[in-house]
Amino acid sequence: MSNNPIYRADHVGSFLRPDYLIQARIQFNKKEISEQDLKEIENKAISELVTKQKAAGLNVITDGEFRRSWWHLDFMWGLNGVEKADLKEGYKFQGVESRPETARLTGKISGENHPFIEHYRFLQQFIENGIVARITIPAPAQFLKELYRPENKVTTQAIYPLQSDLVNDIAKAYQTFIDEIYAIGCRNIQLDDCTWGMMVDSRYNNAGVAHSDQEHTHQCNCHGSENTTVISKSLHELAELFVEINNAAIAKAPQDLILTTHVCRGNYRSTWAASGGYQPIASYLFGRENVRAYYLEFDTERAGDFSPLTEVSGDKQVVLGLISSKIGELEDEQTVINRIKEASQFLPLERLCLSTQCGFASTEEGNALTEEQQWAKIALVNKIAKIVWGTN
């Protein structure tokens, strides 16, 4: 299996934080415990989590994102030239709003000496025969989108008047991070990318990166034109930009480094942000992004049908996110099996796998289910994978 990106039974990476870890982070933020105290508690929680992942029969382990507050912002904050900043409003989900935090530029971006290198180094000790240690990070397109949030846009454009320069520096920063984490032994990286899941919803499809009609004065050559600082607000040109930056960031990655990507439509305290099938962006994401596999949300009708899977190019694989990480109720086994068979009409069964639709805790707050329910979901993924493919 070492040459394949994923296993038949897989997961997206984040897990519910134990209560004592949640309390420790609160204490740390109140300056009641030291950074070293928090680190030791995180180490304990991650060690216990890895034991549970192995006991659950998973071949891929992660640190559960236990050292993070967010699935994406913590990575961005770890890049040089980026700071943590507060906003007036958070991200908007169905019926709820997240904490108002963002990543904002302070200068030119670079990727050396990222704190996630040491995070992965701790996880490495748990690798054994048949067990792969994966790290999850936000995709470059996700970072670009964050820098063009309305509250960040002025700062971003002051530091990077030319968008092509910003794209180049983001790609280089990711290349540096990939080189450094590869050097210590990492061979499996998952790029989490909500940009695609948001673009298919007409409410969000310019993703904040495109300019309004009033601002739009020129069309950017997304391959490096120096003549303009703006891009078209067309969904297709935005998709072109996102696939370009994602591919540029991984273009120099070693051949034996498994690079995959996860796409969903928002995951915060069991809520969601967007709706829409993959078809509008399938030719870009599935046809042209140079990853080895896609972890795709498919647990509700909000993700559309399976027909866009015909756009998955080459021998790339798709991990069907048919088991919801948002709710505690367990899916019907036969219904999930039937949906896998349905998906196999568009992509051969041997190129399909199964997982939860997203992580169980994309932020430290976690989703509205218990730890017992979380592991029951993982057990169901394993059980169905063995029924369908004869192995996990």
Rank of each mutant, 00 (worst) to 15 (best):
G304T: 09
L21M: 01
C358R: 01
G64T: 02
A210L: 02
T176L: 12
I22Q: 12
R292E: 14
Q279M: 12
A376M: 08
L380T: 08
S324Q: 00
G185V: 02
G224P: 06
V263R: 11
N152L: 09
T271M: 11
K54Q: 15
M198W: 14
E237A: 04
E40D: 14
M76E: 13
G266A: 13
T391H: 13
S98M: 11
A248M: 10
V96D: 12
G185D: 04
K233W: 08
Y20P: 03
Q373P: 01
A282E: 14
K88Y: 03
G224T: 05
L352D: 02
V388F: 05
G81P: 03
V167K: 14
F242M: 15
E215H: 10
I26K: 15
K252E: 13
N4P: 03
T136P: 02
K383F: 00
W70P: 09
Y284I: 00
F286C: 05
A274C: 13
K108P: 02
D169N: 13
D37N: 11
F143W: 08
R288N: 09
G359T: 02
T51E: 15
N113Q: 12
I340A: 07
R265K: 13
L147F: 15
V291G: 08
G328R: 05
W389Q: 12
N168Y: 06
R99M: 05
L87D: 04
V388E: 14
A376L: 08
Q345L: 10
P161I: 00
H119E: 11
L320A: 13
F122I: 05
Q374W: 07
Y120P: 06
Y204I: 01
I327V: 12
M198T: 05
K108L: 05
C264N: 13
A207G: 08
A55D: 15
T356D: 06
H223N: 07
G107V: 00
F286H: 08
T229C: 13
T51R: 15
Q373M: 05
A85V: 12
D201W: 03
H119N: 10
E342N: 11
S362V: 10
V12M: 09
I337M: 12
G130V: 00
S164E: 09
R265M: 07
C186Q: 12
L144H: 07
G266K: 10
M199R: 03
Q157S: 15
M1G: 03
D299G: 04
R339F: 06
E342I: 00
G111Y: 06
I378M: 12
E65M: 03
L347C: 03
N4R: 14
K233P: 10
A141L: 07
D305N: 14
M199Q: 13
Q125M: 06
E32N: 11
S307Y: 10
A274V: 02
E101S: 07
P140N: 07
P280D: 02
T106Y: 02
E342M: 07
K233E: 09
E151A: 12
Q357F: 05
G107W: 01
I135D: 14
N80V: 01
E333Y: 06
L241C: 10
N338M: 04
K386N: 15
R265C: 04
E372S: 10
S110A: 05
L144T: 05
I258W: 09
R203M: 04
Y204S: 09
P140R: 07
A85K: 12
D332R: 09
K92Q: 15
Q279P: 03
S275V: 07
N205F: 06
N152F: 02
A376V: 02
Q373G: 03
T300K: 11
E65P: 01
